[in-house]
């Protein structure tokens, strides 16, 4: 599914140069549930962003389904993200002025050749998967944190991507809600065969995945 070789990521600002990642080599198989652990600021999010095509590596190559995407330009990356990748963030990132159903439909707005009817149908299916059918007309602010994260999951899976990336998806939730979210992610992985990569601080969450890698100071240590 994903093949990273010798990935390096350097952030350059006017004065500062931060090496966020270096010498990262990683292969993620299709259908795998991988967790990434490491202290704060070690480069976990950076790695996830690279794998999700939100950013391009400074050097090294990244293969997605055998395609070397590390040199792709903006337009092609956006297209690939839209079709192949779903994101779940720690702070949900829902659009507050859109109802649940419209939030979930959002990725499909950027997909060609899909009618508004199909969009709605797919969004409803996704919401059914996360058990939020009764909240489709709510605004995000009217939902609990766990519910908001479920909306975000629905949005991530609405386009049926093969790869789901979750950046500390339970970080902002209490443990009961966190468990709920984890159950949903497990089910997506087991039933649909979706490849899942999750950044987490919580060892108990990491234990429930197939494999855990550890990052320390931009380097993969285990």
């Amino acid at each position: 599914m994903l093949e990273l070789s010798n990935i390096k990521k350097v952030y350059r600002t006017d004065k500062l140069e931060t090496v966020a990642l270096s010498e990262v080599n990683l292969v993620v198989a299709g259908g795998e549930f991988l967790s990434i652990m490491g202290p704060s600021g070690s480069g976990k999010s950076t790695l996830l962003n690279l794998m999700g095509l939100l950013d391009t590596p400074t050097s090294g190559s990244l293969l997605l389904d055998g395609e070397n995407v590390s040199t792709y330009r903006d337009k092609k990356l956006a297209l690939l993200r839209n079709h192949k990748v779903g994101f779940i963030f720690q702070t949900f990132h829902l659009v507050n002025d859109l109802r649940v159903i419209d939030n979930v439909e959002l990725p499909l707005l950027y997909r060609r050749g899909i009618s508004s009817r199909e969009r709605r149908a797919l969004a409803l299916l996704a919401l059914e998967r996360v058990g939020l059918m009764s909240r489709i007309d709510h605004f995000p602010s009217q939902l609990s944190g766990g519910q908001q994260q479920r909306v975000a999951i629905a949005r991530a899976i609405v386009g049926r991507p093969a790869l789901l990336l979750a950046d500390e998806p339970t970080g902002n939730l209490d443990s009961r809600m966190g468990e709920e979210i984890m159950d949903i992610l497990r089910e997506l992985n087991e039933k649909d065969g979706t490849t899942l990569i999750m950044v987490t601080h919580d060892p108990r969450m990491a234990e429930r995945t197939h494999r855990t890698i550890r990052i320390f100071d931009g380097r993969q240590v285990a």
Binding site: K75, R81, H93, V95, Y110
Partner: peptide, 16 residues
């Protein structure tokens, strides 16, 4: 900014 970034993340191109 966040909303626009999110749109970009879920597949919106620059033109979108």
């Amino acid at each position: 900014t966040r909303e626009i970034g999110l749109r970009r993340a879920v597949g919106a191109g620059v033109r979108d």
